[in-house]
Amino acid sequence: MTFTIQTDPQNGILRLEGTFTFDGHPVFKAATAAALEAGHPSLVLDLSEVSYMDSASLGMLLLLRERAQAKGMQVVLSRPSPTVMTILRVVQFGKLFDIRES
């Protein structure tokens, strides 16, 4: 399954689709680098269309969080799908990220 990202640079929103694994690293890196340059107060990752995440993608989220914090930005994980929410809950990412389920 492919992994794609649609960007909404005006609102600082990235809509992720598909299976978010290590293979999506180039796409994710390019999209988030551009979003970080935009300089919005918060960077929203819409995860509603992400069917699965692996540990590598969780690591990418951590790296994004670190880079965003360096720029004074906050990373918001928006509308994670049930499967993704389970994964985020297991790894306790609620302690690190602002997760908005709706």
Partner: peptide
């Protein structure tokens, strides 16, 4: 390890 590396 770098930032994106962690261990569950």
């Amino acid at each position: 390890m770098p930032t994106e590396r962690f261990v569950c």
